[in-house]
C-alpha cells in the first residue's frame, strides 16, 4: 500500500488544494517499509497534486479538507481518500497503517499541541 499524506509542518495539511508538501510512505502487513520520503510541490495546486498522486501510483491519500470534485476524481481513479484528518501526520500514518484511520478523525496529537504551548 502506498500512502500519500498532505502535510504542513508536522501535521496533516488542513487543505488539499493549498498543500505545498507531501509525504509518501510504503506500507506492507501493517509495517512501514523504509523511511517515508517528503516532496515539495512547485506550487499549491489541487490539479497538480492529483496528477502527482496518479503518477506515483498512490493507493491511499490522507488529507484535510478536500473539494468534492477532487475527491470524486480520486475515487473514480480507485484511490482511497481519508479526508478531514486533523493532527500530526506521523499519528495519521500509524493509524492508517493499523487500519483504523477514518475520515474526519481528530487525532489525539491535535490537542496535545495546545498543552505543549
Amino acid at each position: 500500500m502506498k500512502i500519500l499524506i498532505t502535510i504542513r509542518e508536522n501535521n496533516v495539511a488542513p487543505r488539499f488544494d493549498l498543500t505545498s508538501e507531501v509525504l509518501i510512505a510504503l506500507c506492507e502487513n501493517q509495517e512501514i517499509l523504509g523511511t517515508p520520503r517528503t516532496m515539495l510541490m512547485n506550487r499549491p495546486s489541487a490539479e497538480d497534486l492529483c496528477a502527482l498522486i496518479i503518477k506515483e501510483g498512490i493507493s491511499t491519500v490522507i488529507c484535510g479538507g478536500i473539494e468534492e470534485s477532487h475527491l470524486k476524481y480520486l475515487s473514480w481513479k480507485k484511490i482511497q481518500v481519508v479526508d478531514s484528518v486533523i493532527g500530526p501526520y506521523s499519528e495519521a500514518l500509524n493509524a492508517a497503517n493499523a487500519g483504523f484511520l477514518k475520515a474526519g478523525t481528530i487525532l489525539p496529537g491535535a490537542k496535545k499541541r495546545v498543552l505543549e504551548k
Binding site: 501535521n11 487543505r15 479538507g65 481528530i106 490537542k111 495546545v114
Partner: peptide, 15 residues
C-alpha cells in the same frame, strides 16, 4: 466539543 483545543486553521480550513 471536538473542535475545542484544536488549532483554529485545522477546523476553519480557510485560505
Amino acid at each position: 466539543a471536538d473542535a475545542r483545543g484544536v488549532y483554529a486553521d485545522f477546523i476553519l480550513r480557510s485560505n
